[in-house]
Simulated assay, not measured.
Amino acid sequence: MTTAALPRQFTTETVSDGLLVPILSAMVTAGELDGRAGFEDAMVRAIEGCADEPADGWHAFYVNSLAELDSGVAPFTPIHRRALSLLRGHRVLEVGSCFGLFALHCARTGLDVHACDVCPGAVERLDEAARRLTLPVSSRVADACALPYPDGSMDTVTLIHLLEHLEPAAAATAVDEAVRVAARRVVIAVPFEEAPSEHFGHVQALTEDDLIGWALPWIRRGVRASVFVDHGGWLVLDRVGG
Protein backbone atom coordinates (compact mmCIF):
# COMPACT_ATOMS: atom_id res chain seq x y z
CA MET A 1 0.00 0.00 0.00
CA THR A 2 1.38 3.36 -0.97
CA THR A 3 2.25 6.15 1.44
CA ALA A 4 2.69 8.77 -1.29
CA ALA A 5 2.34 12.35 -0.11
CA LEU A 6 -0.88 14.13 -1.07
CA PRO A 7 -0.42 17.27 -3.15
CA ARG A 8 -2.25 19.46 -0.64
CA GLN A 9 -3.59 19.50 2.89
CA PHE A 10 -7.35 19.07 3.04
CA THR A 11 -9.47 20.60 5.79
CA THR A 12 -12.98 20.01 7.06
CA GLU A 13 -14.04 22.94 4.85
CA THR A 14 -12.50 21.55 1.64
CA VAL A 15 -12.53 17.74 1.79
CA SER A 16 -15.10 16.31 -0.63
CA ASP A 17 -15.65 13.61 -3.22
CA GLY A 18 -15.73 16.14 -6.06
CA LEU A 19 -12.37 17.60 -5.07
CA LEU A 20 -10.53 14.44 -4.05
CA VAL A 21 -11.38 12.09 -6.91
CA PRO A 22 -9.92 14.20 -9.77
CA ILE A 23 -6.75 14.95 -7.79
CA LEU A 24 -6.15 11.32 -6.85
CA SER A 25 -7.01 10.10 -10.36
CA ALA A 26 -4.37 12.46 -11.76
CA MET A 27 -1.87 11.07 -9.26
CA VAL A 28 -2.61 7.52 -10.45
CA THR A 29 -2.10 8.60 -14.06
CA ALA A 30 1.20 10.24 -13.12
CA GLY A 31 2.37 7.07 -11.39
CA GLU A 32 2.36 8.72 -7.96
CA LEU A 33 -0.23 6.29 -6.59
CA ASP A 34 -0.28 2.54 -7.10
CA GLY A 35 -3.59 1.69 -8.75
CA ARG A 36 -6.71 0.94 -6.74
CA ALA A 37 -4.93 0.23 -3.46
CA GLY A 38 -2.98 3.48 -3.62
CA PHE A 39 -6.07 5.45 -4.67
CA GLU A 40 -8.22 4.11 -1.83
CA ASP A 41 -5.47 4.49 0.77
CA ALA A 42 -4.81 8.10 -0.23
CA MET A 43 -8.51 8.94 -0.17
CA VAL A 44 -8.99 7.53 3.33
CA ARG A 45 -5.87 9.33 4.59
CA ALA A 46 -7.07 12.63 3.14
CA ILE A 47 -10.52 12.30 4.70
CA GLU A 48 -9.47 11.02 8.10
CA GLY A 49 -6.49 13.36 8.31
CA CYS A 50 -8.42 16.59 7.79
CA ALA A 51 -9.83 16.61 11.33
CA ASP A 52 -8.63 15.77 14.84
CA GLU A 53 -10.86 12.69 14.84
CA PRO A 54 -11.32 10.42 11.78
CA ALA A 55 -15.09 10.35 12.32
CA ASP A 56 -15.20 14.14 12.07
CA GLY A 57 -13.25 13.97 8.82
CA TRP A 58 -15.82 11.57 7.38
CA HIS A 59 -18.68 13.78 8.54
CA ALA A 60 -17.09 16.79 6.82
CA PHE A 61 -16.60 14.70 3.67
CA TYR A 62 -20.29 13.81 3.56
CA VAL A 63 -21.50 17.33 4.33
CA ASN A 64 -19.25 18.91 1.69
CA SER A 65 -19.91 16.24 -0.95
CA LEU A 66 -23.68 16.60 -0.60
CA ALA A 67 -23.35 20.39 -0.78
CA GLU A 68 -21.35 20.05 -4.01
CA LEU A 69 -24.06 17.85 -5.49
CA ASP A 70 -26.71 20.38 -4.49
CA SER A 71 -24.83 23.31 -6.03
CA GLY A 72 -24.08 21.46 -9.25
CA VAL A 73 -20.29 21.74 -9.08
CA ALA A 74 -19.65 18.03 -8.38
CA PRO A 75 -18.68 16.01 -11.48
CA PHE A 76 -21.30 13.43 -10.51
CA THR A 77 -24.15 15.97 -10.25
CA PRO A 78 -25.64 15.28 -13.73
CA ILE A 79 -25.74 11.56 -12.98
CA HIS A 80 -27.44 12.05 -9.61
CA ARG A 81 -29.97 14.44 -11.09
CA ARG A 82 -30.81 12.13 -13.98
CA ALA A 83 -31.11 9.14 -11.63
CA LEU A 84 -33.40 11.05 -9.27
CA SER A 85 -35.62 12.05 -12.19
CA LEU A 86 -36.01 8.39 -13.16
CA LEU A 87 -37.15 7.05 -9.79
CA ARG A 88 -40.67 5.70 -9.54
CA GLY A 89 -42.64 5.07 -6.37
CA HIS A 90 -41.64 5.68 -2.77
CA ARG A 91 -39.44 2.73 -1.81
CA VAL A 92 -35.97 2.85 -3.39
CA LEU A 93 -33.04 0.45 -3.16
CA GLU A 94 -29.54 1.53 -4.19
CA VAL A 95 -27.41 -1.52 -4.99
CA GLY A 96 -23.65 -0.99 -4.77
CA SER A 97 -24.04 2.16 -2.69
CA CYS A 98 -20.32 2.66 -1.87
CA PHE A 99 -20.17 5.91 0.17
CA GLY A 100 -23.94 6.18 -0.14
CA LEU A 101 -24.11 9.74 -1.42
CA PHE A 102 -26.96 8.89 -3.79
CA ALA A 103 -28.88 7.08 -1.04
CA LEU A 104 -28.49 10.10 1.26
CA HIS A 105 -29.53 12.42 -1.56
CA CYS A 106 -32.70 10.33 -2.06
CA ALA A 107 -33.43 10.30 1.67
CA ARG A 108 -33.42 14.09 1.76
CA THR A 109 -36.32 14.07 -0.71
CA GLY A 110 -38.47 12.06 1.70
CA LEU A 111 -38.20 8.67 -0.01
CA ASP A 112 -38.05 5.37 1.87
CA VAL A 113 -34.43 4.57 1.07
CA HIS A 114 -32.57 1.28 1.32
CA ALA A 115 -28.95 0.70 0.32
CA CYS A 116 -26.57 -2.21 0.13
CA ASP A 117 -22.93 -2.79 -0.68
CA VAL A 118 -20.59 -5.76 -0.60
CA CYS A 119 -18.04 -3.81 1.48
CA PRO A 120 -18.79 -3.80 5.24
CA GLY A 121 -16.66 -0.68 5.78
CA ALA A 122 -18.66 1.30 3.23
CA VAL A 123 -21.93 0.27 4.89
CA GLU A 124 -20.62 1.27 8.31
CA ARG A 125 -19.63 4.71 7.00
CA LEU A 126 -23.02 5.19 5.38
CA ASP A 127 -24.76 4.18 8.61
CA GLU A 128 -22.72 6.69 10.58
CA ALA A 129 -23.25 9.43 8.00
CA ALA A 130 -27.01 8.85 7.99
CA ARG A 131 -27.06 8.98 11.80
CA ARG A 132 -25.11 12.24 12.02
CA LEU A 133 -27.09 13.82 9.19
CA THR A 134 -30.35 12.51 10.72
CA LEU A 135 -31.39 10.95 7.42
CA PRO A 136 -33.33 7.65 7.39
CA VAL A 137 -31.37 5.18 5.25
CA SER A 138 -31.66 1.45 5.90
CA SER A 139 -28.39 -0.14 4.78
CA ARG A 140 -26.91 -3.62 4.88
CA VAL A 141 -24.01 -5.66 3.54
CA ALA A 142 -25.14 -7.60 0.48
CA ASP A 143 -23.91 -9.06 -2.82
CA ALA A 144 -25.55 -7.56 -5.91
CA CYS A 145 -25.75 -11.07 -7.36
CA ALA A 146 -27.79 -12.40 -4.42
CA LEU A 147 -29.88 -9.57 -3.01
CA PRO A 148 -31.42 -10.34 0.40
CA TYR A 149 -34.72 -8.64 -0.45
CA PRO A 150 -38.05 -10.28 -1.37
CA ASP A 151 -39.46 -10.27 -4.89
CA GLY A 152 -41.09 -6.95 -5.78
CA SER A 153 -40.29 -5.43 -2.39
CA MET A 154 -38.91 -2.14 -3.79
CA ASP A 155 -40.55 0.28 -6.21
CA THR A 156 -37.27 1.26 -7.88
CA VAL A 157 -33.90 -0.48 -7.74
CA THR A 158 -30.84 1.46 -8.92
CA LEU A 159 -27.45 0.21 -10.07
CA ILE A 160 -25.55 3.46 -10.54
CA HIS A 161 -21.97 2.95 -11.74
CA LEU A 162 -21.88 -0.57 -10.32
CA LEU A 163 -21.86 -3.02 -13.23
CA GLU A 164 -18.47 -1.92 -14.55
CA HIS A 165 -17.06 -3.31 -11.28
CA LEU A 166 -18.36 -6.82 -12.09
CA GLU A 167 -17.29 -9.48 -14.55
CA PRO A 168 -19.77 -9.95 -17.44
CA ALA A 169 -21.60 -12.97 -16.01
CA ALA A 170 -21.92 -11.36 -12.59
CA ALA A 171 -23.17 -8.11 -14.12
CA ALA A 172 -25.95 -9.97 -15.95
CA THR A 173 -26.90 -11.74 -12.71
CA ALA A 174 -26.99 -8.42 -10.86
CA VAL A 175 -29.43 -7.04 -13.45
CA ASP A 176 -31.63 -10.11 -13.04
CA GLU A 177 -31.62 -9.70 -9.26
CA ALA A 178 -32.52 -6.00 -9.55
CA VAL A 179 -35.50 -6.82 -11.80
CA ARG A 180 -36.63 -9.51 -9.35
CA VAL A 181 -36.65 -7.08 -6.42
CA ALA A 182 -38.15 -4.12 -8.30
CA ALA A 183 -41.95 -3.85 -8.42
CA ARG A 184 -41.87 -1.00 -10.93
CA ARG A 185 -38.50 0.06 -12.34
CA VAL A 186 -34.77 -0.68 -12.53
CA VAL A 187 -32.40 2.21 -13.28
CA ILE A 188 -28.89 1.35 -14.50
CA ALA A 189 -26.11 3.83 -15.24
CA VAL A 190 -22.61 3.00 -16.46
CA PRO A 191 -19.62 5.05 -17.59
CA PHE A 192 -18.40 4.67 -21.15
CA GLU A 193 -14.61 4.17 -21.10
CA GLU A 194 -12.03 3.15 -23.68
CA ALA A 195 -10.42 1.00 -21.00
CA PRO A 196 -11.56 0.10 -17.46
CA SER A 197 -10.35 2.54 -14.78
CA GLU A 198 -8.48 0.11 -12.56
CA HIS A 199 -8.01 2.60 -9.73
CA PHE A 200 -11.81 2.83 -9.42
CA GLY A 201 -12.04 -0.96 -9.37
CA HIS A 202 -13.53 -1.22 -12.87
CA VAL A 203 -13.02 -4.59 -14.55
CA GLN A 204 -14.83 -4.03 -17.87
CA ALA A 205 -15.37 -1.16 -20.29
CA LEU A 206 -19.04 -1.01 -21.24
CA THR A 207 -20.92 0.16 -24.33
CA GLU A 208 -24.51 0.59 -25.50
CA ASP A 209 -24.33 -3.00 -26.77
CA ASP A 210 -23.88 -4.20 -23.19
CA LEU A 211 -26.94 -2.25 -22.09
CA ILE A 212 -28.98 -3.74 -24.92
CA GLY A 213 -27.67 -7.21 -24.09
CA TRP A 214 -28.85 -6.89 -20.47
CA ALA A 215 -32.24 -5.65 -21.65
CA LEU A 216 -33.03 -8.29 -24.30
CA PRO A 217 -33.88 -11.24 -22.00
CA TRP A 218 -36.32 -9.04 -20.10
CA ILE A 219 -37.87 -7.52 -23.22
CA ARG A 220 -38.72 -11.09 -24.27
CA ARG A 221 -40.57 -11.48 -20.94
CA GLY A 222 -42.63 -8.33 -21.48
CA VAL A 223 -40.50 -5.81 -19.61
CA ARG A 224 -40.21 -2.39 -21.30
CA ALA A 225 -36.68 -1.11 -21.86
CA SER A 226 -35.11 2.23 -22.72
CA VAL A 227 -31.43 2.81 -23.53
CA PHE A 228 -29.98 6.30 -23.85
CA VAL A 229 -26.78 8.30 -23.40
CA ASP A 230 -26.31 11.10 -20.86
CA HIS A 231 -22.88 11.38 -19.19
CA GLY A 232 -22.44 7.68 -19.91
CA GLY A 233 -25.02 5.05 -20.69
CA TRP A 234 -28.40 4.35 -19.13
CA LEU A 235 -30.79 1.41 -19.16
CA VAL A 236 -34.27 1.73 -17.66
CA LEU A 237 -36.37 -1.42 -17.28
CA ASP A 238 -40.08 -1.06 -16.49
CA ARG A 239 -42.49 -3.76 -15.47
CA VAL A 240 -45.74 -3.53 -17.41
CA GLY A 241 -48.34 -2.02 -15.10
CA GLY A 242 -45.66 -1.03 -12.60
Rank of each mutant, 00 (worst) to 15 (best):
D34C: 03
V179W: 06
V21F: 06
I219M: 13
A42P: 00
L163A: 04
P75G: 04
H161P: 00
F99G: 11
V141S: 10
D117H: 05
A171H: 05
V63C: 10
T11A: 04
P148H: 12
F228P: 07
A189V: 01
E198P: 09
P136F: 03
T12L: 02
G110H: 08
R221S: 13
T207G: 04
D56E: 11
R125V: 11
A60M: 01
R140V: 01
D151H: 15
D117Y: 03
E167V: 02
D70Q: 13
V141W: 11
V157C: 09
S25Q: 02
S85P: 01
A129E: 01
A5P: 06
G57I: 01
S139D: 08
A169G: 06
V95Y: 03
V63G: 06
G38W: 00
G18A: 07
R220L: 14
E13P: 00
E167W: 05
F39H: 04
V240S: 13
R91T: 11
D41N: 14
A26W: 02
R224G: 06
V28G: 00
R132S: 06
C106T: 07
V236I: 15
R108N: 05
R239Q: 13
D17W: 05
E53H: 15
Y149K: 12
S197W: 13
H105L: 09
Y62V: 09
F228N: 07
R81H: 09
C145F: 10
F10R: 01
A83T: 09
A5L: 14
G121H: 14
